[in-house]
Amino acid sequence: MLQVKGKPKVNKINKKNKTNIFIKKNISGWLIMIPAIILFIFFVWEPLIENIRLSFYSARGITTVDFVGLQNYRDVFKDPAFIPAIKNTIAYTIWSLVLGFLVPIVMAILINEMVYAKGLFRIGTYFPNVVPGLATVMMWGFIFRPGETGILNIMLHQFGVEPQVWLNDPKLTIPLIVITMTWRSAGATALIYLACLQGINHELYEAAIIDGASIWNRIVHVTIPNMKNLGRTLLILQVVAVFQVLYEPMVMKNGGPNNASISIMELVYNLAFGKFDFPKAAAISVMMSIFLITVTVIYNKFVKAEDM
């Protein structure tokens, strides 16, 4: 009986010792994380919660006045620029997947297959990412400028091609803006893919070469399967990032011509800092956040189901 009664005390002592050991091992990590957690709460969660609250109120500037429920959400759908902004943002996403998603993969594969000057090409691909975003947009704005003063039109004039309107053409505005976005960001993404490629076991390539596989077959059967998981992650991250495109259409065409390039985030900016209608801007932000969270959850479930 004495032995039976003594067991719980031993267990409690062991648990207490384990807890003390756990605290001692992890206390330094938690102390390092505390400043970052505080900053994250202050700069991310607090504005997020305040933004949700603001979307249910009327306001004078940023000062809330009356609780209006879902009225701001209803008014958003009546805004003449809301539907074009939705359509354009979807178009940005589709074009970015056609251009911006494939280009870094191709760049990474080409650099990985090179024998000489790999370092030079790595630096060259990343260089556009060093250029400030606003400078990049202004530079491409000069390139695509319509008329005889546009850099691209000057180059085409040497081959007898008449000046084109480029960004003034509603059908070309979004693809050209996506080209600008791709030029700036593709290099950094390509280096991420390149790091993944260099982690692939070289014995797989050697076995493929011994079996007589061509470069194309090695890419299809060795390279791409090993990039699959990274590609899935970067795909959803790119969709989320492109849905928040702002300064490219705003600086290059200010959402024009005739709302042909306005994005959701540009509409939010115009409502908040153009019309000072912060509650409607907050309502659009909340709807966009819910949409992106839903898309991410569905995508992750789809990916997990595919792996099973």
Rank of each mutant, 00 (worst) to 15 (best):
I13R: 08
K15F: 15
N17I: 15
K25W: 01
I32K: 03
L39W: 15
E46S: 04
R53C: 04
S58I: 02
D66Q: 11
G69I: 08
L70V: 10
I90P: 06
I94E: 13
L97H: 07
L99P: 04
V103D: 02
M107N: 07
M107T: 10
V115D: 10
G119R: 03
P128F: 07
N129M: 05
V131H: 13
L134V: 14
A135N: 06
F144I: 02
F144S: 04
R145D: 04
H157A: 15
G160A: 14
D169C: 00
P170Y: 03
P170K: 00
K171H: 09
T173A: 15
L176A: 08
T182Y: 08
G187V: 07
A188K: 03
I192P: 02
Y193D: 00
A195N: 07
C196W: 01
H202P: 07
R218V: 11
H221F: 15
V222P: 05
T223I: 07
N226V: 09
M227D: 03
K228P: 02
L230P: 00
R232A: 10
R232E: 08
I236M: 12
I236P: 05
M250I: 12
N258K: 13
A260D: 13
S261C: 05
S263W: 04
E266G: 02
F276H: 09
A281D: 03
A283E: 12
S285W: 13
M288Y: 00
I290Y: 11
V295P: 01
D307F: 01
D307G: 11
